[in-house]
Design a protein around this nucleic acid. Structure first.
Lengths: 375, 375
DNA sequence: CTGAAAGCGCTTACAG
DNA sequence: CTGAAAGCGCTTACAG
């Protein structure tokens, strides 16, 4: 009993009936490949013509059921909303499409608890491999390990944990943070504040630690009062906008604010401006990511260029990470399909310091507080 | 011959064998529903336990092949990159997921020619309906009409064309543009420049026409020299950054620049700043969209608040459009499945003028040119 | 209360 | 050069 509403698509059988041959003949011819050669030119012609006229399209569901391979790859992402992850996915998808696979996407919507159900969705679709884009979020990876142990290839983009059995692509957050730390120290800053993300977020924590290590070594360690962590949705414009005020209350002497990402930094600059601070004269501000809108290849699409002052930040190689992830996953899937082993080492990605106008030497040396008029 | 590499997932047959019942028993019990009642409690228990222990998961491919319905919905989008469309999709997806469907996505990557092949991909997957998000892009809709004629429900988010047989959700671009036109006229502007998109882009053209109509009626029509259209990738930061300079060369007397979207406006403001113009004192600037980063519900996440000066713009109801689209599509699909007719009228969405700091009265009345120092 | 059988649309050895 | 048959994993009348 077919539903009355939906149009039925023609099948192999329909084509076969029209031409007067068997279904396997049609299948062999339409699939091209070596087997099609065995049929006479005229049969091939008639089959192709009929298929075209009927508007025949092979049903990938049926094909997939018969073949042992689905050519489907799963992606589970902590948040599709976040343009950082969206860019990684975009790049990964290009690679994967070129390799003849398709992505099935499951979005955790920032909820760490959702990993098991997302993984269930993907394995139900019989994906041949899974790309997990978790970034710094604190997610229990046991379900991923389970999938891996069941011989489904997994590639993780996120904080590296040595116990993970699957290959991991991760950012050198500590090194990146040390770059900005040294930059600020070179400028003469001695009292730096930090706007971070969740306490449980590895990226946030590594960046904070990296920064602190620089000032620790210089003999001007950053006290806890200069670090503000965010509770709810972090990494947003709104977060920086709110938190910078808190930071200034707690740590009035700071001359620079390092923010855990660009959005936070931009939000912070807006609030600072409202409060009567002039950046970078009264306060240096920096971000992470070098966020872009639209096409990453045009330098003018970097958002940090379009705020006043332009934003000093650390550029993350999102496209490179995405591409690498796509390649690693297809490589693993191929190896698994061929039954051969394939060890992929973890890969670290570095950031590039982009100095713009939001950082400058502190106006008053040696952390003595200046209290501008409140906006 | 199964591939050696991939783990085989347990099937209904495996569960049946373990429990010692037939596959249809297992199927009926696991699918729950009314039929499960016919089986004894103990059988049900044993089946459920075995399924759980084996880690059985129904194969949706096989299920879909047997049933006449896939519960798959297709989405074809002109550009996933564009955060405007991404937000529409996000909202639509939520609705559709709640209704028990899943999205299959095909991205045209800004290439109008790609519609047929995207549609092919989606119909190959036997989607039960298609959401086409084309915005103002000039895309030949014949392939969409064909799909519709083959009784696959289609909902379009994009410029309204009366000949389209499928329901359409569109923006009142003319009305929106007239709002910003009146706002500028009220401020005293008489010579307004425009930064548009492609000539073939309906949104861009409607906005330009709407704006021109206001000044036409006021007796100060906008000459062609005050309108700059963009060729390549429009709607980007880079586009506004480049084009505003061109506009000022061609039309030195303008006191306000209306941009076709926020990104263009932000790019234009940056270049104006570099050239020594002060916005809004020397030049008013406005956008379209009220673009946001991250979570739309927090007002501080609107990007227009974080540029200096903050951006006057027209807020588009992206979330509302997406939700409406999801609802319209599921409604149509349900109707089609039930074999009943369902006419959905086109729906127009209005924009809301958000006045911020980038628009102000012109410093010098009556379009006499002022040439600031070149940056 | 339970099972045998047919079939969704396709592919893949195997025969001829 | 071509076809008959089995089967991928599931569901759905139909028998008993």
């Amino acid at each position: 009993m077919t539903d009355p509403g939906f149009a039925k698509k023609p099948t192999l059988k329909d084509v076969a009936r029209v031409v007067g041959v068997s279904v396997n003949t049609v299948s062999a011819i339409l699939n091209g490949g070596a087997k099609a050669d065995r049929y006479s030119e005229s049969t091939c012609e008639r089959v192709r013509l009929a298929a075209c006229e009927l508007g025949y399209m092979p049903n990938p569901l049926a094909r997939t059921l018969k073949r042992s391979r689905t050519r489907l790859l799963g992606v589970v992402v902590i948040s599709q909303q976040d343009s950082y992850y969206a860019s990684v996915l975009q790049a990964a998808e290009e690679v994967v499409l070129d390799a003849g696979y398709e992505f099935v996407l499951a979005d955790m919507s920032e909820d760490a608890e959702r990993l098991p159900q997302c993984l269930n969705l993907l394995t139900a679709w019989r994906v041949e491999g899974i790309l997990a884009v978790l970034g710094g979020h604190n997610v229990d990876r046991a379900p991923l390990t389970q999938v891996w142990d069941a011989r489904t290839p997994v590639v993780l983009v996120g904080a590296h944990r040595p116990e993970d059995p699957f290959p991991c692509l991760y950012l050198d957050n500590t090194g990146a943070a040390r770059q900005i730390g040294r930059h600020l120290a070179d400028l003469g800053h001695q009292r730096v504040g930090i706007l971070g993300g969740y306490e449980s977020n590895a990226h946030s924590m590594e960046r904070i630690e990296g920064l602190r290590s620089v000032f620790q070594e210089l003999g001007t360690p950053i006290p806890d009062s200069c670090v503000v962590l965010h509770r709810e949705r972090n990494y947003e414009l709104a977060a920086g906008y709110q938190d910078v005020e808190l930071l200034l209350e707690r740590a009035p002497g700071v001359t620079a604010v390092v923010c855990v990402n660009d959005a936070t930094a931009i939000g912070a600059m807006t609030r600072l401006h409202e409060m009567g601070y002039s950046v970078p004269r009264d306060m240096s501000v920096s971000g992470f990511d070098d966020l872009f809108l639209g096409n990453a290849s045009k330098p003018e699409n970097r958002l940090g260029l379009h705020v006043r002052p332009s934003l000093t930040t650390l550029r993350m190689p999102v496209t490179g990470i995405g591409r690498h992830a796509g390649e690693a996953l297809t490589k693993l899937v191929h190896a698994t399909a061929d039954g051969v082993d394939c060890e992929l080492p973890p890969a670290e990605f570095g950031a590039e310091l982009v100095v713009r106008d939001s950082t400058a030497p502190p106006r008053i040396r040696a952390g003595c507080a200046r209290v501008p008029r409140k906006g």
